[in-house]
Design a protein around this nucleic acid. Structure first.
Lengths: 168, 168
DNA sequence: ACCGTCATGTAATCGGTTACATGATTCT
DNA sequence: AGAATCATGTAACCGATTACATGACGGT
């Protein structure tokens, strides 16, 4: 029940547990991969340490499965739900830097065309993925994930345009 | 002369030292603030530890000033220049995630309009800064920094559009 | 029965952030 | 001269990445 600082990682875990009710760290890994991981991914090891941390601080309940692998299953406590709600409700004025490695190389004088060739490939691929995701979700009611997908699409288009201008 | 892994932070230090010849960590801090810090900022403490690390591994020369604060001044060695050149020349296929805190809140159900209000403010301000920078640099020959500024402009416009759609 | 691969978890390391600390300099 | 602020630097802490380790399972 100790105090701790909640990081974005903490809220990702809390948020996913709210969506799915209860899960083992391994299940959270799968859940992250198909959702929030598209724009904020975690190492799988983080899911083990973070759930343990949150449980110790009273934000999660921990329960060991009997038999087999005796895996730990987690579910939110009221305290966890409350923390997530407060966080979600409060807007943030944090500014996100680009922090793009290719851009960093460009800044320090790298050859634009060379960078563009490989960056175009990955950004076009990602853009195609996002467009496929949007197809799938077409018609579904608007939702948080759908909105973030729109943001991702916009920025990927921007990257593609940017590197296209620099290629060749 | 030990071995170490060079991180983006390392290359920022090396890159800045190539630009300015030699500097103390404190001077690097100022240099970073007006340039690369716009899209990849560092804590000032990093500049002390990173220069020391690079010097120990032979990428930088370290020299103490006599008298006064006896500050340490750093300059690149041939090894440092070589490392920077190799890094700059090699394209990267690293994909950069958005990792935006406001987007994360949106994903987990935050109220779009509330977020948009404060996000619009900061992104509009940043966009204005970038436009001013471009004014200043108008006419100057194309350069790495100028290209990254274009990228920044594009993404800031994208953010502004995105949050505008969600506001009100 | 064996081998390779996926599932699942823990431990060690390390960069980065935060906090702290002291020497200059300016202002009143 | 004293207070406040800026310049400059070091130390401690902690989250995140990396490396390691073992158990289950499918195929041959």
């Amino acid at each position: 029940m100790s105090d701790l600082r909640l990081t974005p990682t903490s809220y990702i875990v809390l948020g996913m547990l709210e969506l799915c009710g209860e899960a083992t760290p391994y299940e959270l890994k799968a859940l992250a991969a198909q959702g929030v991981g598209n724009f904020w991914s975690l190492q799988h090891a983080q899911l083990y340490t973070e759930t343990a941390r949150l449980a110790e601080a009273g934000y999660l309940d921990e329960e060991r499965e009997e038999g087999g692998r005796r895996r730990k299953r987690y579910r939110m406590t009221d305290r966890g739900r409350e923390a997530l709600r407060e966080w979600t409700e409060a807007p943030t004025d944090q500014f996100t830097e680009l922090r793009d490695l290719a851009l960093l190389k460009l800044f320090f004088g790298a050859d634009p065309a060379g960078l563009a060739e490989v960056q175009l490939e990955i950004h076009r691929a990602r853009l195609a993925e996002y467009e496929a995701l949007r197809e799938e979700a077409a018609g579904l009611p608007q939702s948080g994930p759908a909105l973030t997908l729109e943001a991702g699409l916009g920025h990927e288009r921007e990257w593609v345009q940017f590197w296209e201008k620099l290629s060749g």
